[in-house]
Computed example of a mutant assay.
Amino acid sequence: MTMRETARETAYAKINLALHVRRRREDGYHELETLFAFVDAGDELRAGPADADNLALTGEFAAQLSGGDGNIVLEALAALPHGGGWAVSLDKRLPVAAGLGGGSADAGAIFRMVERHHGLPEGWQALAARLGADVPACVASTACIGRGTGTELEPIANDLAGVPVLLVNPRVPLATGPVFRGWDGRDRGPMPTGDVRTIALDGRNDLEPSALALVPQVGEVLRVLGDTSPLLARMSGSGATCFALYESEAALAAAVDRLDRAHPQWWKLAGKLR
């Protein structure tokens, strides 16, 4: 079936409520235990029929991406049967190299679009994993536990769904590779068990020290967020974005106001956990 209408999809920002690094694997990757969660905002994608697949980029962070070969959106389309060509526009609202799974979220949105119009093929999970370790989780964009490199997913009921969340990035890109290479190799123990709230509050992010060594501004973001009386403040993924969870909309609004006045240069996104 050829797409006959304009499809729209949000690429929901991914955060890691907890990220435990257990060991370096012989293949060069790291064995992880992580709790994925997603914010109800992110990049915005539209797609319509075209003679061939193509991608147009707009938005605050568009200049940091290539719209040609090598873009994960086009790679996701190429990996999936989707009828005729698709003209995709991507409004890039999430910072790049920021620990929010931005590219993976964009690919996940493409998977959802294809699913809605054509259905996903058998084995789509493996196709998603080949695009990136976060992509399988980003397809559903609901809270889940990730193991292995993050591609082995387990469902979990999200008792933090609807909780207000603030994302803050100091506008310093931070590539994933150097952060993982800076991990000290010490296994600090498994991720806690229990519900999402328990895992988040009792868990940790083992990549924070490495990220701090590369981008000291992460520490300032965490300090400022910690002063806003959050339920939890932590770095997401490999950074440099940090998040804070709040018990109420009023507490979130107060935190946003405080940061807008004290640090207007930082990138911020307020929303709720999905």
Rank of each mutant, 00 (worst) to 15 (best):
Gly189Asn: 10
Gly189Glu: 06
Pro190Arg: 09
Pro190Trp: 01
Pro190Val: 03
Pro190Ser: 09
Pro192Trp: 09
Pro192Tyr: 09
Thr193Ile: 14
Gly194Lys: 11
Asp195Lys: 07
Asp195Gly: 13
Asp195Thr: 12
Asp195Gln: 11
Val196Arg: 02
Val196His: 04
Val196Met: 07
Arg197Ser: 08
Thr198Ala: 15
Thr198Gly: 08
Ile199Glu: 07
Ile199Ala: 14
Ala200Arg: 05
Ala200Lys: 05
Ala200Cys: 10
Leu201Ile: 12
Asp202Thr: 02
Gly203Thr: 00
Arg204Lys: 14
Arg204Asn: 13
Asn205Ala: 15
Asn205Glu: 11
Asp206Cys: 04
Asp206Arg: 02
Asp206His: 03
Leu207Arg: 04
Leu207Ile: 05
Leu207Thr: 07
Glu208Asp: 05
Glu208Ser: 07
Glu208Leu: 05
Glu208Met: 08
Glu208Val: 15
Glu208Thr: 15
Pro209Ile: 08
Ser210Arg: 12
Leu212Arg: 15
Leu212His: 15
Leu212Ile: 13
Ala213Lys: 15
Val215Lys: 04
Val215Asn: 03
Val215Thr: 08
Val215Gln: 03
Val215Ser: 06
Pro216Ala: 13
Pro216Tyr: 12
Pro216Val: 11
Gln217Val: 08
Gln217Leu: 13
Val218Gln: 14
Gly219Asp: 14
Glu220Pro: 06
Val221Ala: 12
Val221Lys: 14
Val221Glu: 14
Leu222Glu: 08
Arg223His: 11
Arg223Val: 10
Arg223Ser: 14
Val224Thr: 11
Val224Gly: 02
Val224Arg: 14
Val224Trp: 11
Val224Ile: 11
Leu225Met: 13
Leu225Asn: 08
Leu225Gly: 10
Gly226Thr: 01
Gly226Tyr: 00
Asp227Met: 04
Asp227Tyr: 00
Asp227Phe: 00
Thr228Glu: 12
Thr228Met: 12
Thr228Val: 06
Ser229Arg: 14
Ser229Leu: 13
Ser229Gln: 15
Pro230Gln: 00
Pro230Val: 00
Leu232Asn: 02
Leu232Arg: 08
Ala233Pro: 05
Ala233Ile: 06
Ala233Gln: 10
Arg234Gln: 11
Met235Ala: 10
Met235Trp: 06
Ser236Glu: 00
Gly237Phe: 00
Gly237Thr: 02
Gly237Tyr: 00
Gly239His: 07
Ala240Arg: 04
Ala240Leu: 04
Ala240Asp: 06
Ala240Thr: 06
Cys242Gln: 06
Phe243Gly: 05
Phe243His: 08
Ala244Met: 10
Leu245Arg: 03
Leu245Phe: 02
Tyr246Val: 03
Tyr246Leu: 03
Glu247Met: 01
Glu247Gln: 07
Ser248Met: 01
Glu249Gln: 07
Glu249Arg: 09
Ala250Pro: 01
Ala250Met: 03
Ala251Thr: 06
Ala251Trp: 01
Ala251Cys: 05
Leu252Ser: 05
Leu252Trp: 03
Leu252Asp: 04
